[in-house]
């Protein structure tokens, strides 16, 4: 068991505490714009981490998580701006609808694996996008939904950052506990060989269903607070680009590393900001980055670093 369970070294705990401490005091040194970026990184880091549950720990690559994330955003904005609900209730409803949507995706997706899983989640995500684009009465079509919906308690951008930081810490902790739980270990077993897990008597489709739904729940959490952050949602939030960006974050960070998601999110969001200030061709840059990573570093930056280090220490 010890080989599989989490590393409980004091060093690891120290690093976590240090990173958190830096995160907490960061707003005192950063500009408003930079704090906005940091908030964005935390939100998308959570989304990327929810994808990592599937990609890194279950061996299933999803291209539908942008849609799950964005559905939550849509529901929150709709509930507050159109239905006049309280933002807190709206967040609950948003997370619930993302979870239900993920469960529907999961019902179909558990029957597939490999490329088919990817194709199916892609197609399902695109259907959600198509609906958001066309169902103008509810979603506002291309114009989307807009409204200042952030609750008063979080109105200040620094307070909001701290709230997101706390949430991200909780979500990270939750996901870590989930993938390291006995149930999480069965997911890893499925990743490595689902036929073996089946012959051991595990109900593989059921486990996949639960894993996918949980992943969708966390994506929904990220999507709901994104509604507070952005105060706006349009079809591009549920579009394929969203799924691709967040998958890329998980991959850049290194699949199966969880914390890597935040590194991936930082890298991609930094790149996006850098590129956007020079050119409008972000989509091309994204596509090229994706292509290059697939050719040269499919294990991601963290993974590449680990591999290089292993190579180095093997030599010396």
């Amino acid at each position: 068991m010890s080989g599989l369970s989490r590393s409980k070294s004091p060093m690891g705990a120290l690093v976590v505490v240090a990173v958190l401490a830096v995160g907490v005091i960061a707003p005192y040194f950063l500009s408003r714009y930079q704090i906005g970026l940091a908030t964005q990184i935390l939100i998308f880091g959570m989304l990327a981490m929810s994808i990592d549950i599937l990609v890194g720990f279950t061996g299933r690559t999803s291209l539908g998580h942008g849609a799950i994330f964005g559905t939550s955003t849509y529901v929150v904005l709709y509930c507050v701006t159109q239905a006049g609900m309280s933002p807190y209730l709206a967040v609950l409803l948003g997370i619930m609808s993302a979870t239900v949507l993920a469960a529907i995706f999961a019902l179909l997706a558990v029957r597939t694996n490999g490329v088919y899983f990817l194709l199916l989640t892609l197609a399902l995500g695109m259907i959600v996008w198509g609906i958001c684009l066309r169902w103008t009465q509810v979603t506002g079509g291309e114009n989307g939904l807009r409204g200042d919906i952030r609750p008063k308690a979080l109105a200040d951008y620094k307070d909001f950052y701290w709230f997101i930081l706390a949430l991200a810490a909780m979500v990270t902790f939750g996901i870590r506990r989930f993938v390291n739980s006995p149930f999480g270990l069965t997911l890893r077993g499925i990743r490595d060989s689902d036929s073996r897990m089946r012959s051991l008597g595990y109900n593989v489709p059921l486990h996949l269903f639960i894993g996918f739904t949980m992943s969708g729940f966390f994506a929904g959490v990220a999507g709901a607070v994104y509604a507070f952050f952005n105060n706006f949602v349009s079809p591009s939030t549920v579009a394929l680009t969203q799924s691709v960006e967040s998958l890329l974050m998980a991959i850049i960070g290194g699949v199966g590393t969880l914390y890597g998601s935040f590194i991936g999110a930082s890298a991609l969001i930094a790149l996006q900001n850098l590129v956007s200030s020079h050119t409008e061709r972000w989509q091309s840059v994204l596509g090229i980055t994706f292509t290059l990573i697939m050719i040269f570093a499919p294990e991601g930056i963290v993974g590449k670093f680990r591999a290089l280090r292993a190579k180095y220490s093997a030599k010396h």
Binding site: L63, V115, L286, G287, I288, F290, T291, M294, I295
Partner: peptide
């Protein structure tokens, strides 16, 4: 491009997706 990732199903798919993004933007 695809020759570099021959035999890796998922990497091929994701690579072609990256190409799709570039082509669409172009």
């Amino acid at each position: 491009l695809l020759r570099f990732v021959r035999g890796f199903e998922l990497r091929q798919v994701l690579l072609s997706l990256g190409v799709a993004f570039v082509l669409n933007d172009m």
